[in-house]
Computed example of a mutant assay.
Amino acid sequence: MTLDISIVPSAQPRSAAEVAEILADPGFGTHFTDHMFTVEWTPEKGWHDARITAYGPLTLDPATAVLHYAQETFEGMKAYRHADDSIWTFRPDANADRMKRSSHRLALPVLEPEDFVQAVDALVEVDQRWVPESGSEKSLYIRPFMIATEAFLGVRPSQHVTFMVIASPAGAYFKGGVKPLTLWLTEEYTRAGRGGMGAAKTGGNYASSLVAQQEAIGQGCDQVVFLDGAEGKYVEELGGMNMYFVFADGHIVTPETGTILEGITRSAIIELARKSGRTVEERKFSIDEWRDGVASGEIVEVFACGTAAVVTPVGTLKWAGGEVRGSAEPGDFTNEIRAALVDIQYGRTPDVFGWMHQVTKAE
C-alpha cells in the first residue's frame, strides 16, 4: 500500500438512529455514508493528497474536462457483513484490474490495484457502521470513480485527474422474491463496436443505453437486450448485465467478451459452474439461436448477472413483431448458482476460490 491517507472525520455525521432508519429500508443508490475518499493526479506529482473527508458536493469549474469530453471510468462493488460482524468485499482485485483496463482505454492515469483496494478498504473501515446487518441480502454498495478534473476546453487527455470512492447502503434487489425479467430486443440501437469502449466501464456506455431502455419500458419490459454493432445478430449484453443460456444437456453459453463488459460476477459464475461439472462456452451467440432454442425447449434457462442483482432469471424476450416465453419461475440452475454465489459473499459457505477480501475483523 503506497497511499498516505489522511482522515478528517465528518463534523456532522448521521446519528445512530438515522443510520438505523436508513438501513432498515435502504433502497439502492439514494442514501450515502458520512465520508468519501479522494486522491488527485497530475503528471508532475503523480497520485497525491489522498484523504477521507466528510461526504459532500464537489466544486467544479464550468470548463472541467469531464463535463465536456466524458473522460471518466467507474466501478461497482459491495461490502458484506458476516455473522461474526467482520466485513468483507468480493474480488476487489478484479475491480481494480478492470478499472486499470478502463483507464487505459479512456487515456486516464492508472491507479495501481493495491492502491485501489487500499482506498476502498479505508473508506469502508471509516464508515463500517453503514454496512447492514448479516442475515439478509443487504450490503454496502461501493462506487469508485475517476474523472478528468482539469479546467480546459480541448480534445486531449486531462492533466488533472481525481479518483474518488463513495458508498451507499443497498437493500435486497428482489424484495418480493426472485422473479424472471421480461426483456426487449432493440434492433435499432447498439452499445459498442470493435475497437470501441464496450469493454470499459465508463459512463458513456450507460448513457448510450438509456434511450433503448426507455423503449423497453414503453413496451412493458424490464430491461433491453443489445446485439452486436457489426452484423446486428449476435447477443451482447443488457443495459447493465451479462447474459447466460442454459441448455437441456446441461452445458452453458455466455456471449464472448471484446465488445462487452467483462463482468466480475460473470467470471465468478463461469468458475462456479465449471467447478460443479458444467461445460461453459464463451462464444458468439445469435439472437436466432436464443429464440429457436427457447421455442424448441433446447434452452431451458436464461439468466442475467451483475453486481446489483447478482443473478436475475429471464422469462420472456419481446421484439417488434413477436415474443418467446421461457419459464415463469427461476430455473434450478439459476437458483443454484445464485445461492452458491450469495452464500460465499455473506460467509455462509467456505470461500474455496479466495474471492473474499477481509476489511475489518470480527468483534
Rank of each mutant, 00 (worst) to 15 (best):
H35I: 07
H357K: 05
T59F: 11
R51Y: 10
P26W: 06
G306Q: 10
V280A: 05
P330W: 05
W130P: 01
S276Q: 10
K233C: 09
M77P: 01
Y55P: 00
G331W: 02
F353H: 14
V155T: 07
M1P: 08
S139N: 07
S296A: 13
G315Q: 04
A268H: 08
T73V: 15
K138I: 08
A273Y: 04
A339D: 08
I142N: 05
E363A: 15
A248W: 02
W130I: 10
D288L: 14
T312V: 13
G250R: 04
W47M: 02
G331A: 02
H160V: 11
T2N: 13
L60V: 02
E150D: 09
A192C: 10
E187W: 08
G204L: 06
D49M: 06
E282A: 13
N242Y: 07
I299C: 01
G250E: 12
P330S: 02
P113R: 03
V302W: 02
V124S: 01
F247T: 03
V117I: 15
A216D: 04
A230F: 12
D288G: 12
L60I: 01
S168V: 12
F174A: 04
S158Q: 12
I22S: 03
R51W: 08
R101C: 05
I270P: 01
C221S: 03
S15H: 09
A151H: 06
Q223N: 00
A248E: 15
G326H: 01
S139L: 05
G195V: 08
D249T: 10
T316N: 01
N95Q: 12
P169E: 09
G76N: 02
L106V: 08
E271S: 14
N205G: 09
H48F: 11
F28G: 00
T53S: 12
R283N: 07
H31G: 00
S276R: 07
G232K: 04
E289L: 07
E363W: 14
P92F: 13
Q159K: 15
M164D: 05
R101F: 14
N205V: 13
D34A: 01
D4H: 08
G135Q: 07
E231P: 02
F285S: 08
E231S: 13
N205H: 06
G176Q: 02
S209T: 12
L210G: 00
M77K: 05
R194H: 14
A63H: 11
T38K: 01
S10E: 07
I217L: 03
G293F: 04
R51Q: 14
R105P: 08
V117E: 08
K78H: 05
S327V: 07
G195S: 05
P144M: 14
C221D: 00
Y80Q: 10
V211D: 01
P43F: 15
G177A: 06
S15K: 01
E256A: 15
L58A: 11
L317E: 03
W184R: 02
H251Q: 06
A167T: 10
Q118I: 13
A96W: 04
E323L: 11
A16E: 15
D84T: 09
M36G: 11
R129D: 10
A230M: 12
V352D: 15
G347I: 05
W130G: 04
A172K: 00
